[in-house]
Simulated assay, not measured.
Amino acid sequence: MTLSFEQAMAAFEPRLPLAVAYSGGADSTALLIACATKWPGQVKAIHVHHGLQAAADDFEAHCRSVCAALDVPLTVQKTDARHALGQSPEDAARRARYAAFQALTTIKHGPDAIQSMALAHHADDQVETLLLALSRGAGLPGLSAMPERWTRGGISYHRPLLRVSGADIRRWLADQNAGFVTDPTNIDPRYTRNRIRAQLLPVLETCFPQFRDTFARSSTHAAQAQALLLEVAAQDLAQVGVAPRIKLLQALSTPRLANVLRHWLLSCHQATPSTAQLTELMRQIGACQTRGHALRLKVGQGVCERRGGELHWYNL
């Protein structure tokens, strides 16, 4: 169910002290002001300087000015968010941000140590994430879109605005008469997410006024199904071994084999196979009917190969 900005903030009760990811944009500005007002003296801001555009220094200066006015401590983390060959710029920037958040939130210990981190993603961002996943033929992890909360490295991460529309956030921010910066890359039509925001969301609003709620419900169903698959995968991996035994893999049904292989590759090696790679890996596992049958296949950024009766993966 979609909430107003005020309802979402009233329901938000993180462990304190709290850090807010602050870009200087409208959404994170609203979140920072609301959190600083609700928990004075218990909120800090983190600004990640990506260094990808000329305006980045101006964004930092704006953030420093706003935080000084709010009496909120600000930490600026400069990071290299350039994307590698074959990696999307958005993914590279996202990974750089989370690496910076993790580094900054775990520096201090004691009563002032950050307990929670708040991100300003909202309901429209969630819809965009789901539509992007559908456009790429994603499975359940992609269709689950963004979680409202999770824990990483002892820090509780929250998206308290995930059921609030972008328009309602801006309504609240206008009432505060607060200034914010506009990132020009957010309206650049070269990025698929921006085309979804500018072209698809207005059409969905006209055809399906409740699309934020119904899409969120579908993502919740996908997340629940994915959680069940992870439980099954963990049980199967315990049976076949961390260096999976090929004979035991061959005894699994095709869906369970695909499920446990994905889980093994990601949880043990941080490798994600393409659909084509996974299909071929399963075919080759099934073909290993003799002791001397070789198996060697590129999977993710590494190689899977047979060593005796086991399947191994190593980085290139």
Rank of each mutant, 00 (worst) to 15 (best):
E305D: 14
Q87R: 10
Q7K: 09
A61H: 12
A123N: 01
A92I: 04
L201Q: 02
T75G: 00
L281M: 05
A138H: 08
L295G: 08
H47M: 02
W172N: 03
D91C: 08
L295M: 11
D124C: 09
P202F: 05
S28P: 11
H263V: 04
H62G: 08
K108T: 12
R307C: 02
A198D: 13
A133D: 09
S65C: 11
E148V: 13
L32W: 06
Q289N: 15
L16R: 10
D27M: 06
A69C: 10
L132Y: 05
I196K: 00
A223P: 13
H109P: 06
F101H: 10
Q102N: 14
T206L: 13
Y98T: 06
L131A: 04
A103I: 04
H269G: 10
G139H: 00
E13T: 13
V43C: 05
N177A: 15
P14Q: 01
R291L: 11
T106E: 07
L130K: 00
R256H: 13
R163H: 15
F180K: 05
L18W: 01
S253F: 00
F211G: 01
R291N: 04
K78T: 11
E90A: 13
D125C: 03
A225P: 06
D125Y: 03
L31H: 00
D58L: 07
V72Y: 06
W150E: 12
L200C: 10
V260H: 01
E305P: 06
A54Q: 14
A99F: 01
L204Q: 05
V164A: 03
V43N: 02
G110N: 07
L316W: 06
G25I: 07
D58P: 02
A10F: 01
A133K: 06
A61N: 06
S144D: 03
R217S: 12
G142F: 07
D213S: 12
A100G: 06
A251D: 13
G308K: 08
R94I: 13
V240H: 03
A118N: 02
L32G: 03
D175E: 15
A96I: 03
S144F: 05
P147S: 09
H109T: 15
G286P: 05
L104T: 12
D188K: 08
T275N: 12
I107P: 02
V164M: 00
L132P: 08
P273W: 03
P202Q: 03
A92Y: 07
K44C: 13
E280F: 00
G51Q: 04
S219R: 09
A61D: 11
V76P: 02
R195S: 05
R262H: 00
T106H: 04
P141K: 03
E231Q: 15
L119N: 04
D183H: 03
A223F: 06
A68Q: 15
G292F: 02
A198H: 11
S253K: 02
E231W: 09
A10Y: 05
Y22E: 06
R296H: 11
A294T: 14
R212C: 06
R152P: 01
A56Y: 04
